[in-house]
Write a protein that binds this DNA or RNA. Structure first.
Lengths: 126, 126
DNA sequence: CTCCTATATGAACAAATGCTCATATATAGT
DNA sequence: ACTATATATGAGCATTTGTTCATATAGGAG
């Protein structure tokens, strides 16, 4: 079960365990997965995507709903846009954003559902 | 459609859009969701949880598989343990870790599946 | 053209993150 | 008791992150 082997930290390694771990994820996949979750790993971005899941919103509306600076919201929208999680549409002076990634939105709603059913306050808005 | 209103950034707000956004997520839910995703938002933690999804592993094995320092791995395991995403079991000198959160693991595998099917290299190990 | 409004963006800065290094703790063996 | 091994953890540090502030860009109205 435990065999001596040259290892990164200690002398004894479980070879059967390592055999099960021979099939590792490609680094590209790992990085992509981590980047996906990183996009959802911030309260502001969670709230932005949550609000965009209902309907299209302009930057001003989002800033008003989130009670945040236009600049802060715009920076985060730029971040989400670079990851192709949202798209924008310009109409005159205002720019409307909508979500553009069903998969990421699925992960978000999955986590929201679970957190809502686990949290003490389940359905209270705001 | 667009009505003048005291807003966070600009004078014009779409009141019908804001009505749709009246029902906001509780702050506790938002923070919990963001914290959940933050746990998965790092390549090292993704790889740790991925390897623990197959079988139980000790810190040494993980360090060997990930080619990382025992200290680095242990720090991340402590982080995951604090979030109750993994549990540990001591057997003599070695401590075995296993995953302990079906929900988070579901999110992870969902993202891995999607990333794998999207990435150029689909099934190549390592 | 000029002025105003809505959005985007660069610089700066405080806070958080992930690692390394050194050391502490825990268990086993002698 | 002492030593060795496996793991945990605090301090330090470089990098990243999320915001603010100031400013740039883009379009509409006059």
């Amino acid at each position: 079960m435990a065999t001596p082997l040259a290892a990164a930290c200690c002398a004894t390694v479980h070879t059967d365990a390592l055999q099960d771990c021979e099939q590792q994820l490609p680094a590209a996949v790992v990085d992509r997965v981590a980047a996906t979750f990183k996009a959802l790993a911030d309260p502001t971005r969670v709230r932005i995507l949550y609000n965009l899941s209902n309907r299209e919103l302009c930057v001003c509306d989002l800033a008003h709903v989130l009670q945040m600076t236009q600049s802060a919201v715009s920076h985060q929208l730029g971040y989400l846009r670079a990851l192709r999680l949202v798209t924008n549409r310009r109409e005159g002076n205002t720019v409307y954003y909508r979500h553009d990634d069903v998969h990421t939105l699925g992960l978000l709603q999955m986590a929201i559902d679970h957190a809502t059913h686990t949290c003490p306050e389940a359905s209270t808005g705001e």
